[in-house]
Structures are given as C-alpha cells and as structure tokens.
Design a protein around this nucleic acid. Structure first.
Lengths: 217, 217
DNA sequence: GCAGAAAAGTGCGTGCACGCAAGTTTGCAT
DNA sequence: ATGCAAACTTGCGTGCACGCACTTTTCTGC
C-alpha cells in the first residue's frame, strides 16, 4: 500500500522533498517568511535552486506543504476506512473534520505564521483543491464506480466547500487574532466545516441512493 | 444598473481594459500565442507594460478575457431574471447553459486557439471560478438572504461542477480535434453541463425547500 | 473656479518560474 | 558485470509579476 513505485529513486525524491519542506519552514520561522529567498531554501536543503522548483511551484507552497503534509491522501484514506454501514455524507464529512483537526498541524506557530501572511493564506487555501482527485477515487469506490463522473462532481463540490469553510475560518480568526494578540481560536474549525458542508448532504445522499438502487448489494 | 461608480475615470479604465483584451487576442491570432510578449500587447494598446498587469495577472488571462467577456456577470443576471416560479436548480442550470452556449463566443477561431494551447486552456478553466461571487449573490437573492453561507457553498459547488464539465469538454474535444483536424464539436457542451450539474440538483432543491419553509411567501 | 485628495499610469529594480540542453545517477536486462 | 535507457539534477537564459516611489489626471468640497 506504500506508494513505492520504484526503490532508491523514489526514496531520494521523497527525502529531497521533505528536506525542502523542512528547510522552508525552518527558515520562515527563523527570519519571517518575507526574508527567505528560494536560493536559501535550496541551499539549506542541499540542492540547486533550479531543482527546488521541480518540487514546488512557489516559495509559499513549500512552506505550506510543511504544515499540511499529505493531508489529501489522509482524507481519502479516512473516507475509505469508514465502515460500509455509515452513509456517504457522514463518511466524507467526518473524515475531513478529522484530518483538519488532527494534532493541530503539529506546529501551532507554523499555523499562526500562515494565518498572518496573505501570500501564505492564499497558498493554504489552494491546498484544498488537492483533495479533489483522491476524494474522487474514494467516493467512486463507495458508489461502485458505475458513474465516475458523479463522484468527480461531488468531490469537486466538497473541495470547494472546504475551501469556503477555511476561507471563513481565516477571515474570523484573522480578525480575532488581530484584536486579542496571539490567540488562535481554531476550536471552531470543526463546527465551521460541518455547517459549511451540510448543504451538500442532500447531493451526497441522493447519489448514494441511486447507486444502491442500481447495484443492490 | 450599469456599473458606473464614477464618470470619466471608470470609462477610461474600461476602455484601456478593452483595448488590452482586443490587442491581446489580435496579436495571439496573428502570430500564435507563444510569440506574443506582454510588451507587444501593452504597446498595441498604448499603455506601458507596467500598466498592463494592473489589469491582467498573466498574458493568458488577457487573451481568454477577450473571448469570455464578462460571462460571470451575465450568468448572475440570467439567474436573477428567471421567473420566481421556476425552481432554483433549473434557474441556475439553464442560466449557465445559456451563457456558455451563446453565439459560440463570437469567435470560433479564438475558441480553437484556446482549446489547443495548454496555457490558455488552463486560464480558460480558471475563469469558472469567477462566477462564484456573482452567483452567490444571485442564489442568496432567491433563497432570501437568511443564510448567505448556504448560498456561498452552493455557488462554489456549482462553479466547481462547471469547471469539471469544461475540463471534460476540453478533454474530449482536444482528442477529436486532433484526429479530425479543425472540427470543434462544441455541440455537446450544453449536454455535458446539464449532466455534470445534475448531481447538485438535490442540494439546490433542499436549500430551496428550507428557505420556503422558513419564509413562506 | 480652485486647492487638496484620490486614483490611475509609469519607471525601475528584484526575485522567481520555467524551458532547454547538457551531465549524472539509478534501474533493468542481458 | 556491463551497457543501455529512463529519470533526476543542474546551469543558463528569458520573460514576467509585483513592490515602491513618483508624475499626471480626475474628483470633491469649499
């Protein structure tokens, strides 16, 4: 199940990617994200600047990636892992809530960093799009791959809704963080995700019913 | 109803924007889009290169904008114009189909240009995101602005679905265009849009029912 | 009308993304 | 073992996005 297409090659690749991620985050935390050049990141990770952007298309992506990790894969796995008994909507929503609540990103200050800088917030929002394809597969699995297009649309919609939720979360926490100093009341994120995703429940349910009717197990 | 915030100022601004759009498209058609520098576009439109990207964030956006026009505004208006009797789902879906079928973009060759070049296809896909905010307003209007958040999520989902539809359309037409030469069988786009948007109908209906129950007219 | 404010356009400098064409490492099969 | 092919890295060059400070134009209140 490990994503190991080929041996040594892929290992080094992941190692480089991880080194870049770590270096980017470390430097950003040390100096503040505006005083980090991609040359610095590349040097710290021991690769050429040119190689750097074989991995990341922007400085911001590298930093954000260090915080978000491989969340998209984890979300898809979490959906697949829910017992077949629970409804599709529940499976999807709870999987997402779980993965976005984890151990609070194993780095509060990193999250704070992201929240404050506009460019990083932007990049952070963009990561929501990454769950679309893994989630498509996970949903298609549950619907029985008869109609992969429906799964795709649903996954895209869920991803869009997650984006909206995080947008709102960033909006509110940015305001309150400005006021209260350094408080990051991330406590409301799960609720925000649930309420934002709620309007999509009927669509998920309907698709599930259709699938059951077509392929009664 | 005209977006006229202030007089002469806004006019000149729109004129410049239009000049840039036109210049970008003309040059792209003349020389092929890869041989157009933004300096050329700026020069052709009579502004400095620096001014150019006060208007467009990339060369591709300028070209695509010339073809898509202000579609997002037209979609929102079309939704608002549907009689109050028709259901929300129908209003939204048909408005979108209409606006994406118009007179086939008043320029077949321009569309063909977009379809062939990867960078332009990318930019074209991104335009779907632009309908989110206007559409949010239009949907909120129909739902009675009690809960603007629901409207937002639905609009974002619809935009995502439209993106998926166009992605598929580009995919299929790119293949068939390669084979058959210059044929652009855009005929299937409306159908594609309808089937792709269909899975969202339950969500739109449910939101509408909730609104009706809360605010029986 | 006129003065001051606001906004649009401009010049310049910097950092970055990305294509291309080597060079180098890894994998695989003989 | 060894040679070949594919993948990854690298240097270099080009075009571009964007911040900043400044000029010019348009708007607003007196």
């Amino acid at each position: 199940m490990t994503t190991r297409r080929t041996g040594l090659r892929e290992q080094k690749k992941q190692a480089t990617r991880e080194a870049l991620r770590a270096a980017a985050l470390r430097l950003a935390l040390e100096r503040g994200p505006d005083d980090v050049r991609v040359d610095d990141i590349a040097e710290a990770a021991g690769v050429s600047p040119r190689t750097y952007n074989n991995y990341f298309s922007s400085r911001e992506h590298a930093i954000v990636a260090a915080v978000t990790g491989e969340r998209e894969a984890r979300v898809a796995a979490a959906v697949a892992d829910r017992p077949a008994g629970v409804g599709l909507a529940d499976a999807v929503i709870e999987a997402i809530v779980d993965q976005y609540t984890a151990p609070d990103e194993s780095g509060r200050d990193a999250l704070l960093l992201i929240i404050t800088r506009p460019a990083l917030r932007e990049a952070f929002l963009e990561t929501t799009a990454a769950i679309e394809h893994p989630l498509t597969d996970a949903i298609a699995e549950r619907l029985g791959d008869d109609d992969p297009h429906t799964a795709r649309v649903l996954a895209a919609s869920v991803a869009a809704a997650v984006r909206v939720a995080i947008e709102r979360w960033l909006h509110t926490t940015a305001s309150s963080a400005t006021i209260s100093g350094l408080v990051v009341p991330s406590g409301s994120l799960p609720d925000l995700l649930r309420t934002t995703l709620a309007p999509l429940t009927p669509a998920l349910d309907a698709a599930e019913q259709r699938a059951l009717r077509r392929r009664p197990r």
